[in-house]
Simulated scan of single mutants.
Amino acid sequence: MSKLWNVAIVGATGAVGAQMIECLEEREFPVGEIKFLASSRSVGEVLEFKGKPVLVEELKHDSFSGIDIALFSAGGERSREFCPAAAAAGAVCIDNSSAWRMDPEVPLVVPEVNPQAIAGYAKKGIIANPNCSTIQMVVALKPLHDAATIKRIVVSTYQAVSGTGKKAIDELRKQVGELLNCRPVNCNVYPHQIAFNCIPQIDSFEENGYTREELKMVNETRKIMEADIRVTATTVRVPVFYGHAESVNIETEKPLTADGAKKLLKKAPGVKLVDDPAKEVYPMPYTAAGQDLVHVGRVRQDESIDNGLNLWVVADNIRKGAATNAVQIAELLVQKYLNR
């Protein structure tokens, strides 16, 4: 019998926390005991794991006794406060917030791209899960970078409201209903109406005019790919419930044809090539939702520059962009590092 691992999910009542629970079940992760942790507001709620009720407990500094792996999805502030406590108690933290991503002593991991980086977990007992939009992009670009060396990336994202959480999902749903009934809408989550609209702002603006979300994509891509790639990003929130889409333009050092790129993508781990324009087949959020693969299509030459390619990349931001990636990290962690 394989070893079982005690797991805590921090932020278990949130959208990503709920998906983490589902992913652990679906992927049959070898869980011994499971603990659901959340803020005091959620204490007493009952969630299920493998058909059995589990009481939600309050997140405290002493919540991690006996825990082997702690999956965090409760925001950067709580991660900064509680990950060190969990690590001190002997748990390895896999954190979905931005709190630790750029810490040089914390590995930032996408299993299909840089699984070897997991080995660095021992420095602080923490592994960072990248930004959802970064994850799907680097999964798609990794095989192309290995073949032709990417010099520059220009990416525009079209990100679903679920990336903001349950309140944003509810706000979009409510606004659609109000507008269809000719009633005014309230904007509580976003600075503007999101229903039937696009908002070219995700997170706050920095002095250089970029948002924090855009700079995350720049810095995280370089760290994960371990390369000094020039990256520029524009991130947009769109009225879609689940599934981030990205228009990605790359420039490579070596020539790479669109057909050559498609052949590489077709066999790349974690990628599903969805590319038959003649039959109007291409990736879309609603067809990628509920799946763990990164869908790539509209692969074509950029005729404005030498060695340029365009791609359209879509993935479920709650699954591969967050929960599934974290569970995949946990799988590699127990297989290659903790199970010795």
Rank of each mutant, 00 (worst) to 15 (best):
P283M: 05
K50S: 10
V248T: 09
I127R: 05
G75E: 11
N219R: 14
R222Q: 14
F72N: 08
V185K: 12
L141K: 05
V154C: 06
N96C: 14
S133N: 12
V296A: 06
A128D: 07
N131S: 13
S162K: 08
K272F: 04
G17A: 15
L37V: 03
W5S: 06
I21D: 01
E28H: 12
G90V: 10
Y121Q: 05
L180Y: 11
S73T: 15
L265K: 01
H295P: 01
T157N: 10
S247H: 13
N114M: 08
E33M: 03
Q291C: 15
V294K: 04
A119H: 12
G209C: 03
N114V: 03
A322G: 14
S79Q: 08
A85T: 07
E81M: 12
P115K: 07
L273G: 00
D103G: 00
F196Y: 09
F72I: 08
G120Q: 05
L333K: 02
K52T: 11
E246Q: 15
V154I: 12
T252V: 09
V31W: 01
L141M: 09
M137D: 03
G270V: 08
M102C: 00
A288Y: 05
V161I: 14
K279D: 09
S2N: 11
A140L: 04
V56I: 03
I202L: 09
I229G: 11
G75N: 12
T164C: 07
V109C: 02
G125Y: 06
L311F: 13
T232A: 07
A289E: 14
P277A: 07
V161M: 02
Y210T: 15
R319S: 02
C198S: 13
M137K: 11
